[in-house]
Amino acid sequence: MTEQFAVWTENDAEQSARWGSTSNAPVPKRIVVADDTMKADDAYRLACEGTALLWRGDFQNARQLSKAVASRIDRKPRRASEDPAKAFHLHRQTQGRRAQILGMLLIPLDADLSIPLRRAPDAQVALTEAFGITGEPSVRSLRDILGAIGAHEWHRKGVFIEALDARVHPAFGVFSPVRGEYVDLVASAPLPSTESAFDIGTGTGVLAAVLAQRGVKAVTATDQDPGHCNALVATSRGLATAIR
């Protein structure tokens, strides 16, 4: 993949840094420098217009600004439809637009993935696990960075799955199985057969592990994301289940 660079003007000079995006979002066409003096209404307006904000202020204030912008997004009345398919499409459209706007708040990263902002967390380990060391300064959205930090904690602590009586340790980019209702459903629903089962889009592999534990002889789990497949292997080994 061709490397992309974010470009902006700061101190009357053109600056640039490597662009990174977990969701493969394009480089914002316009980037302006922002700090603690930026008001939420102005940030929201600029983000809606497609202007990204490169943060130079306090890291915790950036988090607060992001929350304030999110509240302004959520105030807008949502389009509704009685048709389930159209309602689902509108919901996805709204969520996509929300993510796009919130993704306009950018955080600079040094070459070692440290965050050169006041009151920034020491997140080098989490960011290295998620993004890998590039050896050069970069720019990412605050959402990406907070997601990587949160994923690191999920991976470190694990998520207890009652149906397995064990912890699953999801890696970055793999949905954490924090909603237990679907796990409980697979753990308790009558099985039409115990000869074979398929888990399509397996993620952490938790559902495949539940099926294997219930005595299904051949459980095949697939996912198009290599990172998810690695998580599946880790889950299978950790629980000593036979999943392929």
Rank of each mutant, 00 (worst) to 15 (best):
L105A: 08
W154F: 14
S193W: 12
F131E: 06
E82V: 11
K76E: 15
P192M: 09
D58T: 04
G132K: 02
V183D: 01
E49H: 09
G147P: 11
A166V: 01
D58F: 00
G132H: 05
I149L: 01
A70D: 13
I115Q: 07
D122L: 06
A151D: 12
L54K: 01
I107Y: 00
M104L: 10
A163H: 06
H155E: 12
H91N: 13
A111V: 11
A120I: 08
L105F: 01
T51N: 02
L109S: 05
L117I: 06
I149G: 00
Q93L: 11
R56C: 00
R92C: 09
A187S: 13
D58P: 07
F160M: 10
A80C: 03
P137Y: 09
A120L: 04
L127S: 03
H152K: 05
Q64G: 10
K76D: 11
D112Y: 05
D74A: 14
P137T: 01
G57C: 02
R79A: 15
S141P: 01
F172M: 03
F175P: 05
V159P: 07
Q93F: 06
P121A: 07
V178H: 10
L105I: 13
F160V: 05
F160Q: 06
R140E: 04
R78A: 14
E162M: 05
A171T: 12
T94V: 15
D83S: 10
A80M: 12
I133H: 07
G150E: 13
S114D: 00
V168Q: 03
P190A: 11
A80E: 14
C48F: 07
P121L: 04
P77W: 09
L142T: 11
R118V: 11
P108L: 01
R179H: 13
R143F: 10
P170E: 01
I161H: 11
Q60A: 06
P190W: 09
Q95P: 00
A68I: 08
V125K: 13
L113V: 00
F88C: 10
R75W: 14
D184E: 14
